[in-house]
Design a protein around this nucleic acid. Structure first.
Lengths: 329, 329
DNA sequence: TCTATCAATGCAAACGTTTGCGCAACTGTT
DNA sequence: AACAGTTGCGCAAACGTTTGCATTGATAGA
């Protein structure tokens, strides 16, 4: 099937390419009659401008890159979903790349982004990223760079994050309000900053109440969380609440409580920080503080849009987390 | 930061653009010495060819489109994950678009694909798609089109699918082998073809054994599955096994069984068709027939590659499902 | 020394757009 | 009738590559 170009239209109508181009862009120089003729033909021939040509000519392409550890998962998929919606809305094309939490793959992805002359980049650092120089090249080239979720520590970057502090604080306050006195709090890997932030904020609130005892544990996997839970709930003095810092931990906790036939919320309460999918598949549904990837995606995009409009402020922004009530607390 | 082009390199080295281009492509016409000089400079300046220019010139771009109802979900995210891996491997760029199961959005996505002059398209039909004409335009333009998961009924398309028949058959055989006599089988919406296929294959096997009684139910949502399960398990004569056609159904079933404190597998067995994530979060882990999005993605890509190499055969291909043992059967 | 061959390089066109500028044909003013 | 201003359009260059062909200088054969 023949591809329709401006040239083809211009030949059919006996006009010059430039006139056709301007007619389609509703340029004032072109007469109403010509505009009508051009638009009609363009419609019937189903003309679609060649984006490659436009990008080449304008040195701008409407492509945004997105580097993420993995497309699948509780959180990133909803983040991506939000970004895709916005890209479509603003006619940007989205190029998604997985880093697999591997520094080399990440570097490779950055190279692909540069090759494709993307206009902006959303990035979530891999857990193994040590150097920022590859990212800094985008900054130097004035290509907007918005980090999300796992963000660099340094200040001079655009970042959007879950407000981990507020979320953990909210969780702790809720547990106190519900009069819980012996709380098992399970956190993720101690090496990642999210864990540290959540832990500190959580503890700060809890420690205000000196008749409340918490047992703090760290773990890397769902299985580890399961073991920890089992350990605590086979003791005589069982916790009256479990706090799960993440979905992964929640999975292990619930498995263990089910195994031990501990009733939720009668025998123990459960409260989690979560994207929202997992809490709803349990019965009773788990009460959680929402740390929504979708919301974060929307926020990231507005920040990107600002950057693309020259309002690059290198600041950090947060999404507000809200309580979603289930039946576990 | 200045962008490096062939022109820039040619100026520095006092060569012509064409010589530089050929040198980088290791063209036999160019002397070894020149090649060395060019490559060295290109490396130090970090030259990256401009993909837009290449695409424009060659009328070929290495972009593949992917239209999917939603990025997030049990199945599609792993499908996408597989496709992304392969794209990276073969240096294709992946453009992902969500249809939201809406025909208009789907049509819009197809338009975006055409604008971007993609080289190939992976598509999962929206549940509301009625006409194939928008898709047929890709065929007419000789742009490879590979359907996955929800595929058109007509024969003359490339399709990759879960082998629903084999999977349902496998499930039925397994239940018989385990000597289950009273099976609650819950299927998805009756309007979609997957349901019909799975139902037929399942029944065909079960009906071979005339002392086995099955109760077949259909439902649209996880909640509906929950209600159905409750209904059956509050009767005196409880089923000794539940078959779940999908992850969504599984969620409802487990919720209900948990509520009723029915032990798995002692009081009833559970068997599901699933992508594999959900079964593993329960305790005991659910035994399932794997209907892997990841595998399907890999299969879809090989088919796409064949098409891109001119071996477009318009056939349907299937992934083999395998049994993954958990503790629920 | 002249010509044929060959190796190495350069020229220029093409891909499809956009856009500054120039030009012709009107229009209206003096 | 001469002029300026306006309207509507076309020319050509540019974006960065690739590639057929022309060109150059050198080498070898006679």
């Amino acid at each position: 099937m023949e591809v329709i170009t401006l040239k083809r239209i211009s030949e059919v109508l006996g006009l010059s390419i430039s006139t056709v181009s301007r007619a389609l862009k509703n340029h004032p120089d072109i007469s109403a009659n010509t505009k009508r003729r051009v638009n009609e033909l363009a419609n019937t021939l189903d003309y679609e401008p060649n984006i490659n040509a436009i990008s080449l000519r304008s040195k701008k392409n409407r492509v945004l890159g997105l580097i993420v550890p993995s497309v699948s998962g509780f959180f990133y998929d909803s983040f991506i979903s939000a970004i895709e919606e916005e890209c479509r809305q603003h006619s940007y094309m989205l190029m998604i790349l997985q880093s697999s939490n591997d520094e080399e793959t990440e570097a490779n992805s950055l190279r692909i982004c540069r090759q494709n002359r993307i206009s902006g980049l959303f990035a979530c650092l891999s857990t193994k990223t040590t150097s920022m120089t590859a990212f800094d090249r985008f900054k130097e080239a004035d290509i907007p760079l918005v980090f999300f979720d796992k963000v660099p520590e340094a200040e001079n970057y655009n970042k959007v994050c879950i407000d981990d502090e507020a979320a953990a604080k909210l969780a702790a306050e809720l547990l106190l309000k519900k009069n819980k006195k012996s709380i098992l709090a399970i956190f993720g890997s101690q090496t990642i900053s999210i864990t540290r932030t959540r832990y500190k904020a959580f503890q700060k609130i809890i420690s205000l109440q000196n008749d409340v005892k918490t047992s703090n544990e760290y773990c890397d996997t769902s299985d580890a969380a399961k073991k920890i839970t089992k350990q605590y709930f086979t003791k005589k003095q069982k916790p009256d609440a479990v706090f799960c810092m993440s979905d992964e931990i929640l999975i292990g906790v619930i498995k263990s409580l089910n195994d031990l036939k501990i009733n939720i919320p009668e025998q123990t309460a459960v409260l989690a920080l979560s994207d929202g999918f997992l809490p709803k598949i349990y019965s009773p549904e788990i009460t959680y503080i929402e740390t929504s990837g979708y919301k974060l995606g929307k926020l990231a995009f507005t920040k990107m849009l600002n950057c693309l409009n020259g309002l690059n402020d290198n600041t950090e922004m947060f999404t507000r987390s809200t309580l979603v009530k289930g039946g576990s607390l």
